[in-house]
Each structure stands twice: as structure tokens, then as C-alpha cells.
Simulated assay, not measured.
Amino acid sequence: MKALTIAAQEIRVGLRNRWVLATTLLMAALALSLALLGSAPSGAVKADPLAVVVVSLASLTIFLVPLIALLLSFDAIVGEQERGTLMLLLAYPVSRWQVVVGKVLGQVAILGIATVLGYGAAAGVLWLNGGVGADAWLPYAAMVGTSVMLGASFVAMGCLASTLVRERATAAGLAVGVWLFFVLLYDTALLGVLVADQGRTVGKPALDALLMLNPADVYRLFNMTWSQSVSVYSGMAGPGDPAALPAPVLLAVLAAWIAAPLALAVAAFQRRAL
């Protein structure tokens, strides 16, 4: 499939530009720091060190992975156009949708490799140190998998931004705005609304719906609440009731946050004049 060929080219470019290496080292360094320091309380309170690290890494991932994803993808289309290679690429027998899908797949693969290797290093250190309960490995694997899904949603949003503008600088500014909105501003604004409302208008169903409008919140809810071995250390049962937001629903919403921006990016690129 031609989209896979473009994805493979994106991976080669990422390897040549040391994106994979740099991202992997960054994630491994942060994950190892949390694994070695964040699990320190486990000896005193008999907490599972891997479950503690899941809570810490999930909180860090919300800030780090979306930023890396947007840095990877913000110039996917507009950068090619500025370099003069987009017309050459489209001169080949390849559809526009295949270009967008291929670039997103390649960038998600780069992010996925870095995430699995980086976070896997922390899990390996904890396994060698011992004291990890068997029931903590599944939440950790789920955290790594959903971290890749969270990154994929922001890669798709970055690619969408790249199809909507004509200059890399504009795309970079738009990507920063997307990161600020979903990672910082959305929850701050939502908290302000809840404090002002005092439960008079925004009930639990409305709150659950509002949380689903932010992929970072969906990711947080999934990793903090679905596993009992992790939720006991997260200090929260989730802003919404876990029973009302089961894991399959949260995963489906997170997948929709990948598919919807990708579909919009394809549609926007189909209509883009070169």
C-alpha cells in the first residue's frame, strides 16, 4: 500500500534526523527518574512500585507526549510545500489521502517506538529490582498503549493544522495553541465553570460529556481509574464515576480522537490548492 511506503519514508527521515533517538532518550530518562525516585515510598507503605510509577508517568505523559506529537507533525504538509517537495510527491501515482495517512502512520510509529522503548526501560529496571506485583503489569502495559494512542490523536491534530495553513511558522503557532488549549487551558476553564456553578447546572452526565471533549482527560480517566491496583494510589476515583465511564468507552473515545482529526486532515488536503 502506498500509504505504508510513505510511512516507511517518514520513519527513515525520523531515524536520519535523530528524532527517534532523541525522543527515546528523553522518555527513558524521565521514566527512569520516576521509576527510581517515584517508587521510593513503596518500601515504607508497601505500595507496588510499578503502580506508583503508572500514576506518575500518566501525569507526565499528558504534558510530554502531546507536545512531542505536535512537534513531529505540525509541518507534515506545509513543510513539504515550503521545501518544494510536495508537488514532486504528488506527481507520483499516489492519492492525497494516502499522503496524509502515510505521514500520520509514520509519525505515530516514531512516537510509538520512542514510547515503548523509553517507558519499557523503566519497567525493566523495576522488574530487576523486584517487588512488583503481577497485577501491576497490565495497567503499565495499558498506560504505554494509551500513551501511544494519545500521541496519535495529537499527531493527527498536528497534521490537520499543517493542511490548513500556508506557512510553517503559522503551523507551529497553531500547534502550540492546540497544546496549550487541551493540556492546560481546557481543564482550568472547566474547573472554573464547576466552581462557579456549584453543581446547579453541570451535573454528572454533563461533566462526563465535557471530559470526553479532551483527549488528555480521556487518557487521564482511563489510566487513573480503570485498574484497582492503580486507582488506590492515584488519590482519585476519577472526576467521573468509573462505573459510568467503563474502559471500553474511554478507549473508543480516544480512538475517535485519532480518527476524527485524521479524517478532517484528509478532507482539508483534498480541497487544498497547491
Rank of each mutant, 00 (worst) to 15 (best):
M87H: 08
Y140S: 05
R16E: 12
L207T: 01
L191K: 02
V104Y: 04
D208S: 13
L105Y: 07
S153R: 05
T5L: 14
V53A: 11
L72G: 04
V132H: 06
P49K: 09
L4W: 10
M143E: 13
V249S: 10
E80C: 09
Q9M: 13
V155T: 09
N223M: 09
R96L: 04
F74P: 04
V232E: 10
G158K: 09
L64W: 03
V202D: 01
L90P: 02
G240N: 02
T170F: 00
S39N: 06
T61F: 05
M224S: 05
V125Y: 14
P139N: 07
D48S: 14
A40R: 09
A122E: 08
L60D: 02
A44F: 13
A31F: 14
M1L: 03
T225D: 00
P49L: 14
Y233L: 15
L138S: 06
F269K: 00
L274M: 12
L274V: 11
L36F: 12
L184Y: 13
G84F: 01
D241G: 01
A196L: 05
G106H: 14
S162D: 12
G84L: 07
L245T: 10
V13S: 06
V78K: 06
G235I: 12
W19E: 06
A51Q: 08
F154L: 06
G192A: 06
V45G: 01
V183A: 07
W127M: 07
M27F: 14
V230D: 00
A244H: 07
W257P: 03
A263M: 11
C159W: 02
P261R: 10
L250Q: 13
S147L: 03
V54E: 06
A152L: 06
